[in-house]
Computed example of a mutant assay.
Amino acid sequence: MYTGDGKGKTTAAIGQGMRAYGNGLKIYMVQFLKGGPTGELKTIDELNDNFKIFRFEKPRDFVWNLNEDEKEELKREIKEGYKFIINTIKENKCDVLIIDEIMGVLYNKFLTEEEVIYIIDNKPQSMELILTGRNIPEAILKKSDLVTEMKCIKHYFEKGVGARKGIEY
């Protein structure tokens, strides 16, 4: 689990995925709440089929800027991603399953804690599971074997520096 208010949760998960990829393992990464283009999409797309990123949402604004209809549409797309994850664990389709921003999905109530705990409890023993996002619920924290908290000490956003291509996305 990579959590906390600091930068680097997705980057750490991808780094772990690259290490696994370099050792011949098959990696699936499901990204939630990220619809726009990012550098990792291009890089990972250039690898062979042993590292794949899956997204189920169309590009849209941040959750807090969406109206109720847009939130309902997003929730349906997230449920499709969840079904994909359940199928992935049932069929043991990969060695490492990264679920990026799953805590943001929980925080926004697009999935329930029980649904995420189901993933943790039912993944194959041989499958590594990496979850990312802020605001990890206590029940999921207790089920996690490794939790790393990214803590923001200082961030250039506070000086008005915006998100930069190749650095934040």
Rank of each mutant, 00 (worst) to 15 (best):
L141N: 11
K159A: 13
E46Q: 11
E149D: 13
I117T: 11
L33R: 06
V63F: 12
I14L: 15
K52M: 12
K90A: 10
K79C: 09
D121H: 11
I53C: 02
F54N: 12
A163F: 13
G133H: 03
N87V: 04
I117Q: 13
K52V: 15
K26N: 11
N50K: 12
V105E: 03
G4R: 10
I130S: 13
F157D: 02
L33C: 01
M18P: 00
L97Y: 00
V116C: 01
G17I: 00
Y28R: 15
N65P: 03
E113P: 01
E80G: 05
K151Q: 13
L141D: 14
M29H: 03
L74F: 04
R164P: 05
I27T: 11
N135C: 10
K34H: 09
P124V: 01
K90G: 06
G36L: 07
A139S: 14
G166Q: 01
E91K: 15
K42D: 11
G36R: 08
V96F: 04
M127F: 05
T38Q: 10
M29F: 01
D49G: 09
I98D: 00
H155E: 02
G162S: 15
I14G: 03
L131F: 10
I89T: 05
G15P: 00
G104S: 06
D61F: 15
K142C: 07
K93P: 02
Q125K: 12
V63I: 06
G133N: 04
T43K: 14
T38Y: 10
I153R: 12
L129T: 04
K90D: 12
H155D: 02
I14Y: 02
K52A: 07
K93D: 06
E77Q: 15
L141E: 13
I120N: 02
F51S: 05
K109D: 12
L66A: 03
Y82E: 02
E101T: 08
E72T: 13
V161F: 01
T38C: 10
F56T: 09
G8D: 06
K93G: 11
N92F: 03
C152W: 07
K7S: 11
E128G: 11
K7D: 08
G133S: 01
I167F: 01
K123S: 03
